[in-house]
Design a protein around this nucleic acid. Structure first.
Lengths: 197, 197
DNA sequence: CATACATACGGAGGCAGCATCCGTTTTGAT
DNA sequence: ATCAAAACGGATGCTGCCTCCGTATGTATG
């Protein structure tokens, strides 16, 4: 079970090479054409046949999940920054923004993400990441609630949905101003009313 | 320009027949398989060739818009009911629910709807309906604001987006309970804080 | 009723993308 | 140098989109 364990044979070199090439190309295509981009095109540009792509990543979701893994590291990095903040309300706000950006990395991403969040299919490779994000959000929410900055009825899952929504709308090409207005609306929804003295 | 004007020749009978058959079949398929349903299948089941379908409705959006027209009549009917209510806050709430149901009639509907709401392409047949809905929402918002029940900073367009979002999430198969929580969150966002005496 | 004309029909066909299967090549081990 | 496992990749079949044009259908006229 040790890290360096190599059972049987050393893995072939081209495997890792192709995998990397596919991931890089896929990321570019997802960025440019959204999650619905042609997988054939990705394979061709990565210099491999369709078969190779499908062997590495049996479904579009699998490829997507693998590409997202890279990006999710950025998200974790942000978490470190966020936890520096003393203010739990501020922390929650920033976390929501971070998630939103993560969700809107590629156009059309929120749809498969939501499908995974529903999580009926446990073999969906996007399911696990979603679960992590939801419980992370819940942490931030609880902290802010303890500080009396967020209404008691709010749950992490609610704000996860809200962040997804905003990301979805963003992906439809709505202007940034409208988005900001929506964010403000949502913030007014979860923030505790000022406890007037 | 009068209604009964018939220039040249009387229109052929099969035209109207096919159009109706297509609309009915399309509605069924949209309901069962979402807006992405196969148009070929619709044509076949309606008993016409693909060419006929595309002549009547050149794009998927055109077909969608035509089908939606029927449903939008229900929406207008609801407006009458809603305006019976004395309470403008209640009226707004009901209107939002009505829109939400309208948006989630077919799975996947919110996407083309939002694309139309952006309204860069004025020939998109969904654009006009969207504009109407937005300004209608604005009416309800203003009324509620005059009664001091909705925060002054809120605009109709914001709540239009919110309703779209909820409809979108609904379409992804999220449980009704989560949806209700989200609706509550949004409502807390736009409602005026209780003016404590 | 017969004819002529306009109009609409419908399916064949070209194209793109998905996903699979299997003969061939590459690679690591001996 | 040789072998066998492992991976490759492209040919293949399928579905759906959308267009084009020869043909059928329905409407007006003698």
């Amino acid at each position: 079970m040790s890290a360096g364990e190599q059972r049987g044979r050393k893995p072939r070199a081209d495997v890792q090479r192709n995998r990397t090439a596919l991931l890089e190309t896929a990321q570019r295509h997802f960025l440019q054409h959204g999650v619905g981009t042609s997988l054939e095109a990705v394979a061709k540009e990565a210099g491999v046949g369709p078969g190779t792509l499908y062997r590495h990543f049996p479904t579009r979701e699998a490829l997507l999940a693998a590409v997202l893994q890279t990006r999710s590291e950025e998200l974790v990095a942000r978490q470190a920054d966020i936890e520096q903040l003393g203010d739990p309300a501020e922390a929650l706000e920033q976390w929501l923004r971070a998630m939103e950006e993560y969700f809107s990395a590629f156009s059309g991403l929120p749809d498969p993400l939501m499908a995974a969040a529903r999580a009926q299919e446990p073999d969906n490779p996007l399911t696990i990441p979603c679960g992590i994000l939801i419980s992370a959000t819940d942490q931030y929410v609880r902290a802010a609630q303890l500080a009396g900055r967020v209404r008691a009825s709010v749950r992490g899952h609610d704000l996860f949905l809200a962040a997804c929504s905003v990301a979805w709308i963003k992906g439809t090409g709505t202007e940034e101003e409208s988005l900001d207005r929506l964010r403000t609306l949502i913030a007014s929804g979860y923030r505790e009313r000022d406890t007037q003295a």
